[in-house]
């Protein structure tokens, strides 16, 4: 069964002048279709302004479609009574770690979601413990979030969502404000959730290195889905990606350039290991 179904989604931002007259309409999402299976790791790529964050907000019923429909776990996001069940089954992690941590202590923040859901006190503690352990932040549970690094804060945010026992986690550029080591930390935690706990992950990002392990990749530009497929299929089309102002991983780029200058390599090489293997074959 599909955990998320997006059908002909259109979203328009309407700009108004001071009197409230419509000045202009920006179409942020333009007829997007998307099907995401339970347990998948899906990445949505796009440069700034491609509509990927707007899309993410639809999956959590923070924004509603102008046209088309979004179903999360079989529920239409436009029905008001579905709001809480949808937000419960599709948790969301945002870009800025400082602006989404509510508690003054790590464990209190992780407990915020379950508290809102009306979970019993004893179970809240169990959930907090298991979520913090899942992201490797259990030993920081008594710390103030202000004393953590960016990557650690983001892992706390993920734990906060996990504690609500979602079927699916949407991460809206969770690594955009982090340094390289923080990025790795967060991506490792997210992959573990997907592989070990079987939670569906939708990762919105513009870092190519983060999507090579995804099951499926969507590439967005100007509100449309321009490409979709496995990472291999996507990264085989280096020139098209470049025309969408996206860079490819360095290894892929190297392989691409080598191929162009006559080395017999296959398309869509994603890791250094792979390139080494293929180069060995060539000799």
């Amino acid at each position: 069964m599909n955990i998320i179904d997006v059908s002909k989604l259109v979203f328009e931002y309407i700009r108004r002048d001071d009197e409230g007259n419509v000045e202009g309409i920006t179409t942020a999402i333009d007829h997007v279709d998307m099907e995401i299976k339970q347990g998948d790791f899906v990445a949505v790529l796009g440069h700034n302004g491609s509509g990927k964050s707007t899309l993410a907000k639809h999956l959590n019923a923070i924004l509603y479609p102008s046209e088309g429909t979004v179903w999360v776990d079989g529920k239409d996001t436009q029905e008001e009574e579905n709001l809480i069940p949808i937000r419960k089954s599709a948790g969301m992690v945002f870009q800025n770690p400082d602006n989404q941590i509510i508690g003054q202590i790590v464990e209190e923040d992780v407990g915020f979601g379950p508290e809102n859901l009306g979970v019993e006190t004893k179970q809240i503690w169990e959930r907090v413990e298991e979520s913090l352990k899942a992201v490797g932040m259990y030993k920081y549970r008594k710390k103030s979030p202000n004393r953590l690094s960016g990557g650690q804060k983001q892992r706390v945010s993920i734990a906060g969502v996990l504690a609500m026992h979602p079927k699916c986690i949407i991460l809206d550029e969770p690594t955009a404000m982090l340094d390289p080591s923080g990025r790795k930390e967060v991506i490792r935690a997210v992959r573990a959730l997907n592989e070990v706990e079987g939670i569906t992950v939708i990762l919105i990002t513009h870092y190519m290195e983060e999507v090579i392990h995804a099951d499926k990749v969507y590439v967005m530009d100007k509100g449309r889905v321009e490409m979709q497929g496995t990472p291999k299929e996507i990264f085989a089309q280096v020139d098209k990606l470049r025309s969408l102002r996206l860079s490819v991983p360095q290894v892929t780029l190297l392989a691409h350039e080598l191929k162009k200058s006559g080395v017999a390599l296959p398309d869509g090489i994603l890791t250094t290991q792979e390139l080494i293997e293929e180069l060995k074959k060539v000799r």
Binding site: K57, N60, I62, I84, R87, K88, G91, M92, F94, N96, N99, Q100, I102, F112, G113, N116, L117, G160, V161, M164
Partner: peptide
């Protein structure tokens, strides 16, 4: 604004 959104996303009502 961000915080309000994050709170809503975590089912705060």
């Amino acid at each position: 604004n961000d915080l309000a959104m994050a709170m809503e996303a975590r089912c705060y009502q």
